[in-house]
């Protein structure tokens, strides 16, 4: 299991245990974490799963995927260098403890 913390725009924290192989968007939906919509189900078509990877973790979650930049431009909240589509971040044991910040709005 991989420990994951989501920090909402208002500072509220939710800690969950997800399985390696899952992605950060899907883990949030499965655990009823507010702040991620994931309308397209992870097909990189909606940008309603936008998140900011915590600075400490940004290097470890890797580069944006091919096509991710284009879709991020459609996100409802401001983009930062740590912006990612959470459906594109796959959980591995290396990411145990990952901290994800949620934007103010997704739609």
């Amino acid at each position: 299991m991989v420990k994951l913390t989501y920090i909402a725009a208002d500072g509220g924290r939710t800690e969950i245990q997800a399985e390696a192989g899952d992605n950060v968007m899907h883990a949030a939906i499965a655990h009823d974490v507010d702040g991620i919509v994931g309308e397209c189900g992870g097909s990189m078509m909606c940008a309603t799963c936008h998140c900011y990877v915590d600075d400490e973790w940004a290097a470890r979650t890797g580069e944006r995927h091919d096509g991710e930049d284009d879709m991020l431009e459609c996100a409802a909240s401001e983009l930062r260098p740590t912006s990612r589509l959470s459906c594109q971040i796959k959980l591995t044991d290396d990411l145990d403890g990952l901290v994800i910040h949620l934007p103010e709005a997704q739609i």
Partner: peptide, 18 residues
Amino acid sequence: PTGHMAFGAGIHGCVGQN
């Protein structure tokens, strides 16, 4: 119904869904 499969899922998930 988040996660329904009407538009498929994964890399081929419907590109025209919007």
